[in-house]
Amino acid sequence: MPRLLIPLALVVGTLWWWAVLKLALAPAASGPVEGAVAVGGWGLSLLPVHCTRQVITRASRLRRSGAESGPS
Rank of each mutant, 00 (worst) to 15 (best):
H50F: 14
A36G: 06
A38E: 02
V55R: 11
A59R: 04
P2S: 15
L8G: 10
P32E: 06
L5S: 14
I6L: 15
L15H: 04
P7N: 14
P48E: 00
T57S: 11
T52E: 07
G31A: 10
L4N: 14
P32V: 09
P48W: 05
S60K: 06
R63S: 13
V37C: 08
I6R: 13
L25R: 12
R64W: 00
E68D: 03
L8M: 15
L23T: 07
H50L: 14
V49D: 02
R3M: 12
V12R: 08
A67S: 05
T52W: 08
A24Q: 01
P32H: 01
W16V: 01
A9E: 02
G66E: 09
I56R: 13
E34Y: 00
Q54G: 00
R53G: 14
W17Q: 07
S65Q: 13
R53S: 13
P71D: 10
A29Y: 09
L5G: 06
L46T: 01
T14A: 15
A19S: 00
V39H: 05
G40F: 09
S69Y: 02
V20F: 05
G43V: 09
V12A: 08
S72T: 13
G41V: 02
A26K: 04
L8H: 03
R3H: 11
G43A: 02
G13L: 10
A67W: 10
A28F: 08
G43E: 11
V37H: 02
A24D: 11
P2A: 15
P7D: 14
S30T: 04
M1V: 07
V55P: 11
H50Y: 08
T14I: 15
R61F: 03
A26H: 06
A36H: 03
G43K: 01
L25D: 08
R61Q: 10
V55I: 00
H50Q: 13
R58H: 05
P32Y: 01
R61V: 15
V55A: 14
L10R: 03
L47N: 11
L25G: 04
V33A: 13
L46A: 04
V12H: 08
A28Y: 06
L46V: 00
L8I: 10
P48M: 09
H50P: 12
T57A: 07
A59E: 12
R64H: 08
G41L: 07
A24C: 01
S45D: 05
A28W: 07
P27T: 02
L5N: 04
A24L: 10
E34H: 08
P48D: 07
L46N: 03
T14R: 00
A24I: 02
A29N: 09
G40P: 09
A19E: 06
L5C: 00
V11N: 14
V20H: 01
R3S: 12
L21C: 13
S65V: 11
P48Q: 00
E68H: 05
R53A: 14
